[in-house]
Every structure is written in C-alpha cells, then in structure tokens.
C-alpha cells in the first residue's frame, strides 16, 4: 500500500500547490503593482506610467500567470524587485531563522502543554481543572503582539534578563519563543486534556484501575500512551497556526525571519517574495500534515481497517 499511497499523495500535493499558486497569484495581481510604491511620495501619474511601462507590467493576467507557472516549473520563482535577486533564495535565506523560532516554540509548548493537559484531565471537573483551563484560555486570549511587548517590558526593560530583540545568542530566542508558544500551548493543553479524558474513560483503563494498579501507573502507562496518537497529530497540525504566529512575533521582536519578510513583501507588493514564501510555507504545512497522516496510519490500526 505504501508506494501507491505515497504516489497518490504526491500527485495530490502537486495539485494543491498549483491551486495555491493560482490563488496567491490572483490575489497579488489584484493587489496591484508596486510601481507607485517605488516612487517618492510626490511622484506624478506620469512618472508612474513611465516606470510601469518599463517594467512590463501591462500584460494581461492570464499571460502573466502563464509565464509565472512556466518559469516556476523550471525552478525560477521570479525576481524580487526590492532585493534585486532571485526571490526563492531570499526566502530560503530567511527560513532557518523562522525554523529556529518555530522549533524552540513548539518544544516549549510541548513542555508546558503535555503535563498540564494530562494533569487537568486526571483532575477533571475539580476547581484545579478549572484553574488550568482558565490559564489555557487566558494564554489563548492574549494577542501575540500584546504579549510580546509586555514580555519585553518586564523581562528586558525592567528585569534586564533577556535582550530585547534581534537574533544571535540563544538568549535572544527566549522571549519570542515564549510569545509564540503561549497560544499554541494553550490550544494543545485543551486538546490533550480532552484526548486524555477520553482514554481515561476507556474500559481497559477502568479495568486496570479496578485491578488495583497504582493510579499514576495507569495514567502514564496506559491512558497517556494511548492518547499519544492524537497528541502527536495535534502537534503536527499546529504548523499552520505556528507559521501564522511568526508573522506578528517576528515583527515585534525584529526577528529576521520569513514572517517579517512576508509582511514587508505584502506592504511593498513584492509579488515574487509573497509567492515564494507562501509556497515554502505551504510545502512545510503540507509536509507536516503528511507526516501526521502517516503517523496516524502507522500508529492507529483502526484506520487501516477502513
């Protein structure tokens, strides 16, 4: 099944990528060209027209998209007008910074969310559970930018523990990672809790408990292990949220990653950069989903039988 399954998946992914390229190209096309933005504040309409003509931006949509798709198939994602170089290489340059932030954040989120979720599931419906849920909700309800600025004010300006912004030493990643991790940890906590609640109510866990196995043993050995599958899936499915969060977190912390690049690119209508980064992000998300899918198949026998 594996090879056939994989082939089908790859075909699907290619299709999805083409759809994405169409959606994004269409959006950016409608967004208008960057010409007016490249000129000074007091440029006249005539100046704009001259430049637009010289950049070959007067072609119709289908022609432009067709050319784009053709070039893309040859690995050419266009040139960024702002950077004057191959857009994809600009994007790939930024990827490590964003991955660093994302990986540290997700690890932080796991460290907090897994114990908290398990713990509040075992104490379901007590006031402790309520406090944990409340904490998770507050974590989810705080917008990234607000949390980021607050963390800077507290931990950098007042307490001088961490540097304010930028990327460099490991200390630099701490505050942005906490900012990014909070919302995700909150989401994870809630999902892990409900997944744990479910497996704790399974018959075999109850049986194990009634046989007098120590409660902690039951929780960790049986229930937790069993709810591990959805938990792993959940983690992989957070990729999209995570990448979305980097847009704002990177801006607040002047973190030189993909998120900041994208915001700049949208603001300056740098079509090639927007295209390339959405592409890279989409491939990342799809890849993560694929892994989640595969894990699910491998770990959960029930899926196969379907």
């Amino acid at each position: 099944m594996t090879i056939k399954f994989l082939l089908r998946k790859i075909l699907q992914i290619l299709l999805v990528l083409i759809i994405i390229s169409f959606i994004v190209f269409g959006l950016v096309y409608v967004a208008g060209d960057p010409v007016a933005l490249m000129l000074p504040d007091d440029a006249s309409q005539e100046d704009v027209e001259i430049l637009r003509e010289s950049m070959g931006l007067n072609e119709p949509f289908i022609v432009q998209y067709g050319l784009y798709l053709l070039n893309m198939l040859q690995g050419d994602f266009g040139e960024s007008y702002r950077y004057g170089q191959d857009a994809m290489s600009v994007v790939l340059d930024r990827l490590p910074a964003t991955l660093e932030l994302a990986i540290v954040s997700i690890i932080l989120a796991i460290v907090v969310a897994v114990p908290l979720g398990v713990w509040s599931a075992t104490k379901k419906n007590t006031s402790l559970d309520l406090v944990a849920t409340g904490a998770a909700v507050i974590g989810k309800a705080m917008p990234n930018f607000w949390l980021g600025i607050m963390l800077i004010l507290i931990f950098s300006v007042t307490l001088s523990i961490f540097p304010v912004s930028g990327r460099g030493t490991p200390a630099h990643v701490v505050l942005p990672a906490i900012t990014l991790a909070t919302g995700i940890a909150a989401e994870m906590t809630r999902l892990i809790r409900s997944s744990m609640v479910e497996s704790l109510s399974q018959d075999y866990v109850r049986t194990a408990r009634s046989k007098g196995l120590r409660s902690r043993m039951v929780i960790y050995k049986h229930a937790f292990r069993n709810s591990l599958i959805p938990v792993v899936t959940i983690i992989f499915l957070q990729t999209s949220t995570l990448v979305g969060g980097t847009l704002i977190t990177e801006t607040v912390f002047a973190w030189p990653g993909l998120g900041q690049l994208l915001i700049q690119a949208v603001n300056t209508r740098d079509m090639a950069i927007v295209q390339s980064s959405v592409f890279v992000i989409a491939i990342l998300v799809i890849l993560m989903n694929l892994i989640a899918d595969l894990l699910y198949r491998v770990l959960d026998p029930r899926i196969k039988s379907k």
């Binding site: 908290l116 998770a136 906490i178």
Partner: peptide, 30 residues
C-alpha cells in the same frame, strides 16, 4: 507546573541561557 501568564517558562530555560546573555555578544547581537 502551572501555566500562569508564562512566568514559569523563562525560568525553565533561563539557566541554560544566561551565560549567553550579557557577556557573550561576540555575534554582534544586542
């Protein structure tokens, strides 16, 4: 551990990082 406003998170990582914080700026960071 409880997740209240993340006050805990920096502490868990702080010990690992503080050596790289103020003194070590060889990368021209902050």
């Amino acid at each position: 551990e409880e997740e209240t406003g993340n006050a805990d998170d920096p502490e868990t990582t702080e010990t690992e990082d503080s050596n790289g914080d103020v003194e070590d700026d060889s990368n021209g960071g902050a």
